[in-house]
Simulated scan of single mutants.
Amino acid sequence: MINWPEQLKRDLISRRVVVFLGSGVSKNSVGKDGETRPPLWSEFLERGLAKIGSKGTAHIRRAIKDNDLLHACEWIKSRMEEEWEHFIRECFITPAYAPAEIHKLIFNLDQRIYLTPNFDQIFENYVMSETGGQVTVKRYSDPDVHNFLREDRTHIIKVHGSIDHPNELIFSNHDYAKARVSYSAFYDVLDACLLSHTFLIIGCGISDPDLSLLLENQRFNFPNSRPHYLVTSSHIAPDMVKSLRSNRNLKCLCYDPDNHHADLVRSLEKLVELMDQVPAQPLIN
C-alpha cells in the first residue's frame, strides 16, 4: 500500500494537484471483445513492426530492443505511409475500450486539471459520460489551451494530441521537435503549471522527452521547490529513485505491482476516501 505524503493530501484537498495519467492507466481497460487491451508504446511499435514485415527492419527491431522508441516509431511511420492512420485507429479506437476502475478512481480525486499523453479517449469519454459533458478537453495545439490554468472548470489536456487529429499526434523525434518549436507557448504553460501545482504522475514511464525536459528545467531553475510525485512499481531500482529525486525533483511512491496492480487500486481508494470528506468542486460551464 502506498504511504501517501501528507503534503500531497493537503494539495489534493486544496485542489492544487495536476493528475498526469499515462498509458499504464489505459492498460487496465479491456475492449468489447473482453480480451484486447490498449498497447503500451513498445507493444504498439512491435505491432507496427509486424505490419511492415521483416525485410530491411533489423535496425528498427534493434532500436525497440534498445528502448530507442522515438526513432523506431519514426521509421515505422515512414514505412506505413498512408496506412499509418488506420493502424493507429486499429490499436486505440476500434476495440472500443471500456473504462476501468482506475479511471473512475482518478476522476474521483476531484481535481481541476488532468494531463495525459494518451491518444485513446478512454478517460475523457468516461468523464464526459459522468458529468454530462461538463468538462473541457483540449489538445496542446489548441490556441486557447492555456485557459486551463485560470478557469474553474475541469480540464483534460491531451499533451500529445488526440486520435481525432492524427496529423497532430506526437510520436516520433520529428514530432517532438516540431511541437516544441511550433507550440513553444504550450510548453511555457506547462512550465507555469509545474510551478503552481503539484504533479501526481500515474501509469507513466520516465522516458518521455517532453516531461523529462520540463522536470529537469524546473529542478535546476527552482531548486528549492517542493517535489512532484511519481507513482511507480516497487521494482524500480533504488539508484533510479535517487536519480529521479536529484535530477527531476520527483519523489517515487511505490506499490506492489503483483495481482494486476491491485495494490495501486487500493491505494487510490484511500485517496478517494479522503476526497469524499471534502465538499465537491462545482462543475462550471
Rank of each mutant, 00 (worst) to 15 (best):
N167V: 00
A58E: 13
Q121N: 09
T131G: 09
K270I: 08
S184E: 15
D66G: 12
G34Q: 05
E43C: 06
I60Y: 13
F87A: 01
Q281C: 07
N221H: 09
K251G: 03
A98R: 15
V189C: 15
Q277C: 06
D68R: 06
A98F: 14
K104C: 10
N67H: 14
N167L: 00
D256R: 09
L8Y: 07
I64P: 08
I163F: 03
K9T: 01
I106Y: 12
D263Q: 01
T154R: 11
L149I: 11
P117E: 03
I13D: 08
G56W: 06
Y140M: 01
T136S: 13
K27E: 02
F199Y: 06
G34F: 08
R150P: 03
R266M: 13
L49N: 06
K9R: 02
E130P: 10
I202G: 04
Q281M: 14
A179T: 07
Y183S: 11
P95Y: 03
D210H: 01
L213T: 01
W84P: 05
R180H: 03
D276I: 07
K178Q: 02
Q121H: 07
P223T: 11
V137S: 04
L283D: 09
P209M: 04
I157L: 13
G56P: 08
V25C: 05
K27V: 01
R112V: 15
R248E: 02
R226G: 07
F20R: 02
G132R: 02
V265H: 14
S172F: 12
R219F: 00
A237F: 13
D208Y: 01
A72S: 11
N147V: 15
P39D: 06
N167F: 00
F92T: 06
D164I: 06
A179P: 10
L149Q: 04
R150G: 11
T131F: 11
E151Y: 15
V278Q: 04
P227K: 04
P117F: 05
